[in-house]
């Protein structure tokens, strides 16, 4: 299967690879997928005020999965949390020209963003209660 140039670029030069301190209060972590399905994405955000100031990812998966999560971190960095929630998998599909068989990679990336934000919100509401 031929990959698009953008997928190859993200695969060869993934943006924002790494990990943030998952115990930090202003860090939200999302881990989606499962090893037996061949895809696991971990996406983390660091939030200051209501802005995502940093994002990191690690992905076990095919080139399209790596590219989708790399692109997701690139897009959410600098966005307000609520803006990041508006990113949809179809935008990722379009940007990376993913073929139909790889659409689930983009779905997973969207899920990873939402899951990381949910984790962050959960943490900050717990913090408010304390």
């Amino acid at each position: 299967m031929a990959y698009s140039d953008k997928v190859v670029d993200h695969y060869n030069n993934p943006r924002n690879v790494g990990s943030l301190d998952k115990d930090s209060e202003n860090v939200g972590t999302g881990v989606v997928g499962a090893p037996e399905c061949g895809d696991v994405m971990k996406l983390q955000i660091e939030v200051e005020g209501d802005t995502i100031v940093d994002a990191k990812f690690k992905t076990f998966g095919c080139g399209s999965a790596i590219a989708s999560s790399s692109l997701a971190t690139e897009w959410i960095k600098g966005k307000k949390v609520d803006e990041a929630l508006e990113i949809t998998n179809t935008e990722i599909v379009e940007e990376l020209s993913l073929p139909p068989v790889k659409i689930h990679c983009s779905v997973l990336a969207e899920d990873a963003i939402k899951s990381a934000i949910a984790d962050y919100k959960q943490k900050s509401s717990d913090g408010d209660e304390a």
Binding site: V17, P35, K58, T59, F60
Partner: peptide
């Protein structure tokens, strides 16, 4: 280096 699973295993997580 990119794999969240490898990172978890190195941290001692039983997958």
């Amino acid at each position: 280096e990119l794999s969240p699973l490898y990172e978890m295993v190195l941290e001692g997580v039983d997958l």
